[in-house]
């Protein structure tokens, strides 16, 4: 009887604990989601509706905000630039990082230790520190080239290809770090078997090890996609012509002009436009993404 009462009490205690836990978690869910839902809701309001109250739902879906942001706010052009930069950046990144990670994780050679050390040091160097010198270096190189007739019109700054390349190179340390951690876990036997089968070095890397590292590759592509799509400090200095600006810069400009033009709706629509691709990607891959993080974090 007594034992029964105790277990009943413990059970009661447990359900109470569960309820409290749920309340805390739901409260934080609201803190996370509410600002975003508020943004989406506001992006469909007319300016008058926006000025009346922060709480009321829009009476109609005022899609004009999106049209304004896309056309007058120039986000349409910025969107295309962001796609170009992200796609190019990912290509450059794969071409550079995969061979480097492969060789440094699976082959032995004299300077491997130094190479690893130098690349890992890059984890401490972020674009925020070096964006100004990078820009200065490239613009003085451009000035130097422009003195020659054949390179007269060459533009290196405000150049999306160069910008994408710099983005790719600056994510190299983190990417190589993640890939190497994964690749070094694959048994050595595969190379030996491939060698016996007459596979060359390139074929061994591209046809044997790369397909086996698919999950690590998907992880780095996701991380780097977000880092190129969202990159700000370098773009702010490097992409100043309106024709080459990317979405983060476009959004910041929109916010600055909005202070005077007071087209609130367009700015909220702009935020949704920048968020949307990452939200879609996140919905597709979120499980892999959160696993990827534990992969990178625990190897530390």
């Amino acid at each position: 009887m007594a034992a029964d009462a105790i277990s009943k009490k413990a059970k009661h205690h447990k359900t109470l604990l569960k309820v409290v836990t749920r309340i805390v978690l739901i409260a934080f869910t609201v803190v996370v989601l509410f600002p975003i839902l508020w943004t989406v809701m506001t992006s469909f309001k007319t300016s008058t509706e926006f000025l009346t109250s922060a709480w009321t739902l829009p009476s109609t879906l005022h899609v004009q905000n999106y049209v304004n942001a896309w056309n007058t706010g120039n986000l349409g052009a910025n969107f295309i630039n962001s796609i170009i930069v992200t796609a190019l950046g990912l290509c450059f990144m794969l071409v550079l990082a995969v061979p480097l990670a492969y060789v440094t994780s699976r082959m032995k050679f004299k300077v491997r230790g130094i190479v690893n050390f130098v690349v890992m040091a890059g984890l401490f160097i972020s674009q925020t520190y070096i964006a100004v010198p990078v820009f200065t270096m490239i613009s003085s190189f451009q000035r130097y080239l422009n003195e020659y007739v054949i390179f007269q019109d060459l533009r290196l700054t405000n150049n999306l290809v160069i910008y994408a390349l710099i983005c790719a190179v600056s994510t190299l340390p983190f990417t190589v770090y993640l890939l190497r951690g994964y690749m070094s876990g694959i048994p050595k036997d595969y190379e030996e078997a491939a060698g016996i089968d007459g596979c060359g070095l390139w074929a061994t890397m591209l046809r044997v090890i790369v397909p086996m590292s698919k999950s690590a590759l998907v992880t780095v592509v996701m991380f780097d996609f977000m880092s190129y799509w969202n990159e700000f400090p370098l773009a702010q200095i490097f992409l100043t012509d309106s024709s080459v600006k990317t979405l983060p810069i476009g959004l910041q400009n929109l916010m600055e002009t909005q202070k005077f033009a007071t087209d609130w709706g367009a700015m909220f629509a702009g935020m949704v436009i920048v968020m949307l691709p990452t939200i879609v990607l996140y919905c597709i891959v979120q499980k892999r993404l959160t696993q990827g993080i534990s992969m990178g974090g625990l190897k530390g």
Binding site: T29, V32, W38, T39
Partner: peptide, 30 residues
């Protein structure tokens, strides 16, 4: 919960900054 709590991390810092500027707005902020 894990999916929701992680979500802000995929947003651009510029978007988050802009979003909070609107939240903190003296006249129309949340």
């Amino acid at each position: 919960y894990r999916t929701v709590f992680f979500f802000p991390n995929v947003l651009a810092i510029v978007v988050i900054g802009t979003l909070f500027v609107q939240i903190y707005d003296p006249t129309n902020g949340l």
